[in-house]
């Protein structure tokens, strides 16, 4: 296994200049080389995670708190495994979605976590901007594990890592993101990462699920999925976020599948070696057919989960370098 810095030392600015941010609240504002730095850092953890013994002691003695104000299974688990494999003490604080999400409680909780001297706090919250609000109140690095409809930066990074390992290059790569773009923080973080890295990003949704002025984020909007799929190299499907919808956005799941479901036939419109991705959880038979989701060599959905752990390890390791007093990072 290569050491933490050797592979990337030549390509990136020295020390903390490679990633001069205190936390990871979003991918907006990150320079392309900072994103690439994190992706490269994750490679060593991909390797480690494939060894029989998947544990290092880089973060020994550090405490990571996962504060999830919104239900989550896979992201919480992914962050927990990432922290533990780096040797940190990981504590999960699950706060039910309905119980305390309003009032001073949020700030109070932040100050409580801060007083417990966490070395990193990972937060998921149902409100856009909530993670930033907490980050302003704590002294340690904060990682956004999803805030409302705003950003989900580690998902954007792990998707970029998955694409990079499958396709090698981002420049000119045709990526289609299809589904509930309006309510999706995954879409926003992916758009920011992939456009920064030079990909040609197309977003596809019915009008009711397309955010205003989305083309200002340097993507091409489509309503016609078949047109969007033409020659695509990457097809990323998103779930309908029914829990965030008030009112009727689509007539029925059946009708949605008719227009936007990814079937084997539809996939044939994309490039012959196009890969299929989905951040999960999937609604099989709605936005993606089972035989596509399970298509060997083409569907990278489980690879995304694998990359998720490595990517989160990279983020935690990089963001705690200052606290661990690594040379050049103090």
């Amino acid at each position: 296994m290569t050491s933490a810095n050797s592979s990337s030392r030549s390509r990136y600015p020295a020390g903390s200049l490679a990633f001069p941010h205190r936390g990871l609240l979003g991918l907006a504002g990150l320079a392309p080389h900072e994103i690439l730095f994190l992706l490269d850092e994750a490679e060593q953890w991909v390797e480690l995670n494939r060894q029989p013994t998947k544990r290092v002691d880089h973060l020994r003695g550090l405490t990571i708190i996962n504060a999830f104000y919104e239900n989550s299974t896979r992201t919480l688990l992914s962050f927990e495994i990432a922290g533990k494999r780096l040797g940190a003490d990981v504590v999960n604080m699950s706060v039910g979605q309905s119980s305390v999400k309003k009032g001073e409680t949020l700030i109070d909780t932040a100050m409580t976590l801060n007083a417990m001297r966490a070395d990193a706090i990972v937060i998921r919250h149902a409100s856009s901007g909530a993670v930033r609000l907490i980050a302003e109140k704590v002294d340690c690095p904060v990682l956004n594990a999803g805030d409302g409809q705003h950003e989900h930066p580690t998902q954007g990074l792990l998707d970029a890592l998955t694409i990079k390992r499958a396709k090698g290059e981002f420049v000119g790569l045709k990526v289609v993101i299809c589904g509930d773009i309006l309510h999706s923080r995954v879409a926003r973080s992916n758009i920011l990462a992939l456009t920064a890295l030079g990909a040609d990003v197309r977003v596809c949704a019915p009008p009711a699920l397309m955010p205003a002025d989305i083309e200002r984020m340097r993507v091409t909007p489509y309503h016609d999925f078949d047109a969007a799929l033409k020659d695509a190299d990457v097809v990323m499907m998103l779930r309908l976020q029914n829990e965030r919808m008030t009112g009727q956005f689509i007539p029925s799941p059946r009708e949605y599948r008719h227009l936007y479901g990814l079937s084997v036939d539809r996939l044939a419109r994309a490039a012959g070696d196009a890969i299929v991705m989905h951040p999960g959880p999937m609604n099989r038979g709605v936005e993606i057919d089972s035989n596509v989701a399970d298509l060997p060599g083409r569907s990278l959905i489980t690879t995304q989960v694998e990359m998720g752990v490595a990517m989160r390890m990279a983020c935690l390791e990089v963001l705690t370098r200052k606290a661990r007093k690594l040379e050049g990072w103090q």
């Binding site: 805030d147 409302g148 409809q149 705003h150 923080r185 926003r188 205003a212 002025d213 984020m217």
Partner: peptide
């Protein structure tokens, strides 16, 4: 509804 609301992910 605008670029700003879209980037911030705010109901608009």
């Amino acid at each position: 509804a605008s670029e700003m609301a879209t980037r911030l992910g705010l109901p608009s």
